[in-house]
């Protein structure tokens, strides 16, 4: 028996919205520890990794580890039937063919349940080494979204350069070129969540497809902060912490000069 209850059901809506344009089908693994998901986009250039700790749920029970093969577009359709203030409960048997989703309005006046058919999905699981990155940038997620959206109008590839002073996002295209530099905030600058913080061992410059960075920014509603982890010649990690429950991280392979 698997049962997971989230008082803030809208969180689940936001999570699926953040994934479904990048990944069509995915296995969500449920264990005593919580929910995890790892899935690549169709062209195997990027990967999305979701982690929701059991402690972040209001009720969580998982007697036996199970894998839920989900069509994310279809799950999104069902979650659209939930109100934004609804409590959402997920339920599945030990060897499930379906996932049951129950939505309860805050005053308990409306209770609905839906069953989503599960699929057998063969996926390739990648082992991601737990490495220390040379640069970690923490910045407001809305700011990152804006930069990606703005630069995508000009070109396809973004050069991200991280130095101690700041992070430079550069693009060039047929109409011209552009740069946006965000500088490290000084300690006195305003709110923690509005700050740009850079931890750097050595400067890093990498090239990335703006199209994929754009997919990642669908996670912006999940939190005020995004973290970018970069090291030379390896995929970037774009991590959105989800307050109190876990995180969603996207890995994107760099574009390489040949």
């Amino acid at each position: 028996m698997f049962e997971a209850r989230l008082t803030e059901g809208s969180l689940l809506k936001k999570i699926i919205e953040a994934i479904k344009d990048l990944v069509q089908e995915a296995n969500v693994d449920c264990s005593e520890e919580g929910l995890t998901m790892q899935a690549m986009d169709a062209s195997h250039v990027s990967l999305c990794s979701l982690n929701m700790r059991h402690g972040g749920f209001d009720h969580y029970r998982c007697d036996r580890s199970i894998s839920l093969g989900l069509n994310l577009a279809n799950l999104g359709k069902i979650l659209k039937c939930a109100g934004n203030d609804d409590v959402v409960t997920l339920k599945a048997e030990d060897e499930p063919d379906t996932l049951t989703l129950m939505f309860e309005s805050p005053n308990q006046e409306r209770i609905s349940d839906f069953e989503l058919k599960l699929m057998d999905i063969e996926t390739e699981h990648l082992g991601i080494p737990n490495e220390e990155y040379k640069c970690t940038i923490s910045m407001p997620s809305g700011e990152f979204q804006r930069i990606v959206r703005d630069l995508a109008v000009i070109g396809e590839t973004c050069i991200i350069t991280c130095t101690k002073e700041g992070v430079k996002f550069s693009v060039s295209g047929d109409l011209g070129n552009g740069n946006v530099t965000v500088r490290q905030s000084s300690a006195a600058d305003g709110d923690e969540k509005d700050q740009v913080k850079i931890q750097m061992e050595e400067p890093v410059t990498l090239n990335f497809a703006l199209r994929y960075l754009g997919f990642f920014t669908k996670a912006t509603p999940l939190g005020s902060t995004v973290k970018l982890h970069m090291s030379p010649d390896v995929p970037i990690v774009v991590e959105y912490p989800i307050d109190g429950i876990g995180s969603i991280s996207y890995f994107l392979a760099p574009k390489i000069d040949e």
Binding site: M40, S43, L126, G127, T157, A253, I256, D257, E258
Partner: peptide
Amino acid sequence: VMTQSKLSAFFRSS
């Protein structure tokens, strides 16, 4: 020319 690399070039299948 910039070429888009794949994740398999960096991470192993497990």
